[in-house]
Design a protein around this nucleic acid. Structure first.
Lengths: 234, 234
DNA sequence: ACGAGAATTTAGGCTCGCCTAACTTACTGC
DNA sequence: GCAGTAAGTTAGGCGAGCCTAAATTCTCGT
C-alpha cells in the first residue's frame, strides 16, 4: 500500500456516492444490534467480497464517516450516523410515498426505494413526506428518522420469541423479500394486526397463530422476521 | 491502446449507467438538430473534456448504441435511440409529476429529474404519468415520448426568428436554467401564452413583446430559447 | 497456552469514467 | 494547393469500487 495519509477527516459537503451510502446504512444496522459491524456481515449484506469491504472501510474512515480499528470492527462516527440516518429517512419516506400516493404494493417498494434514495434531494423527500401527512413509519412498520436525525429505535420482540398463549400486535416486518411480504399480507400479518400465538412446536418448529378469526402455521424463520409488541401497547 | 475488439454489439439487457444515458440524451439532441453529434458539442454539453468523449463514444459503439466514424461524428443506432428516448421520457415525466403532484416550480425540476431519471423504474414512470393524466409535454413544453418510443419532434420556430407584427403562441422554452425560467415566468412567457412581437432592434438587439396587456423587452439570446407556433395552430 | 479454523487484511488486478498533454486530421482562407 | 487553426484522437494517468489469492490476526477449545 502506498501512502494514504492525505487529510484524514476531510468531510466536505460533497455528496456521498451510492456505494458509500449503502455501506453506512448496513453499518448502522449492524452496529445497532451488535455494537459494531463486522467486515463479513457487511460483505454478506451487500453481496460484496470481504476483501472489498476492508478497502472501502478504510476510505470511509479517511472521510471521517467511520471509526475503524483493524480486525476490530467498524463503528459510525457522528457524521457517519447522520449520513446513515439521512439515507434511511429517504428510503422509508420513499417507500411510504410509493404506497400511499402511487398505489405500489408493499412488496415492490423496497427495490425502487433502494435506487431512488441515492438520487432524491432533501427537498423532494420533504415534499413527499408532507404530501402523505408526515408518516412516522414506512409501510413495513419501520420508524422514519426525522429531518434532524432522530429515530425511535425501541427494540421489539420477535414473534418467534413470544410466549405461547399471548396476544401481540404486529409492529414491523422485514422489508426486503417481496415474496415473504406477499405471503405475510395474505396471512394478514401487517403492522397493527393482532396475533395470538396459540402453539409452538418444539425444536424450532412451526408456530400456530390466530389472526382475527383465521388460524395459520408459520415457520420459525418467518416468525423471526415479524416484530411485535404487547397487544395493548402504544 | 491494446486490442479492443471483444464482441462488438454485445447489447445485453444490462441497465445502462448514468453517464451512458447522459451521453445518449446529448447525442440524441445534437443529432436531431445537426444530423450528427460532434465530439466537442457533447463535451461542452456534459462539461467533460473532449478527449474523454472520444473514449466514451468508443465504448458506446462497442455496446452497439452508437455508430461512429473517427473524426466524422456520432449517430445513434436504433438501440441507442430507443435508450435515449426512454431516458428522455423518464426525465420529462418526472418533471411533469414534480410540478403537478408535488408543487415544484418549473425552475427546480430539471436538476431533480436529471438525477432521478437514472434511478426510476419503468413502472414508477408509468405510475407517475398515469397519476397526472398521461401528460403529453413536460412543464416547459417539451414533448414526452410515449412508452414505445414515439415522439413528436415537429421543429418549431424560435421567437427570435418571428416576424415583427406577428402574434405567436409559446410552445416550449429551454428547461435548464432556473434563473431564466423564473424570469420567463415573471414575464408570462409560459407555454400556451400568446405573444406579439412588436419591434426588433437591429444588430441582434432586444425584441419588444406584447404579452396580454403587458409589454416587455427581451434580449435576442433569451428569445432564441423560446419556441413558438403561429397563434392559431394546434 | 497453543494450534485450528474463522475472520480479516494485504497484494495485485480489472473496468469505468474522467483528466492533461501531445499528436493527427480536417477544414478554411488565401 | 497549402498553411494555419479548429476539431478530434491517442497516450498515459488517476481514483473509486470491485475481484481473487495469499498472507495475517484473532479466538476458542482443549
Amino acid at each position: 500500500m502506498t501512502a494514504r495519509k492525505r487529510k484524514a477527516k476531510a468531510a466536505r459537503a460533497e455528496p456521498l456516492t451510492a456505494p458509500v451510502e449503502d455501506y453506512l446504512k448496513a453499518i448502522y444496522a449492524f452496529e445497532r444490534d451488535s455494537g459494531a459491524a463486522a467486515t463479513n456481515d457487511i460483505a454478506q449484506h451487500l453481496s460484496i467480497a470481504p476483501a472489498s469491504v476492508s478497502g472501502m472501510v478504510q476510505r470511509l474512515a479517511d472521510q471521517g464517516l467511520v471509526s475503524y480499528e483493524r480486525y476490530r470492527g467498524v463503528r459510525l462516527t457522528a457524521a457517519g450516523r447522520r449520513a446513515a440516518l439521512r439515507t434511511i429517512r429517504r428510503h422509508r419516506v420513499i417507500e411510504a410515498y410509493l404506497v400511499q400516493a402511487l398505489g405500489y404494493g408493499w412488496d415492490g417498494v423496497h427495490a425502487e426505494a433502494e435506487r431512488l434514495e441515492h438520487a432524491a434531494s432533501d427537498t423532494l423527500i420533504d415534499r413527499m413526506a408532507a404530501a402523505i401527512g408526515e408518516p412516522v413509519t414506512d409501510p413495513h412498520g419501520a420508524p422514519i428518522p426525522t429531518r434532524d436525525g432522530t429515530i425511535d429505535e425501541t427494540p421489539h420482540q420477535s414473534l418467534a420469541d413470544a410466549a405461547v398463549g399471548t396476544t401481540t400486535r404486529v409492529v414491523r416486518v422485514g422489508d426486503e423479500d417481496p415474496g415473504m411480504l406477499r405471503y405475510l399480507d395474505a396471512l394478514g400479518l401487517r403492522p397493527g394486526a393482532e396475533v395470538t400465538l396459540t402453539q409452538r412446536a418444539p425444536f424450532d418448529g412451526p408456530l400456530t397463530l390466530a389472526i382475527g378469526s383465521a388460524t395459520c402455521q408459520v415457520g420459525a424463520a418467518l416468525a423471526s422476521r415479524v416484530l411485535v409488541a404487547a397487544a395493548g401497547d402504544d
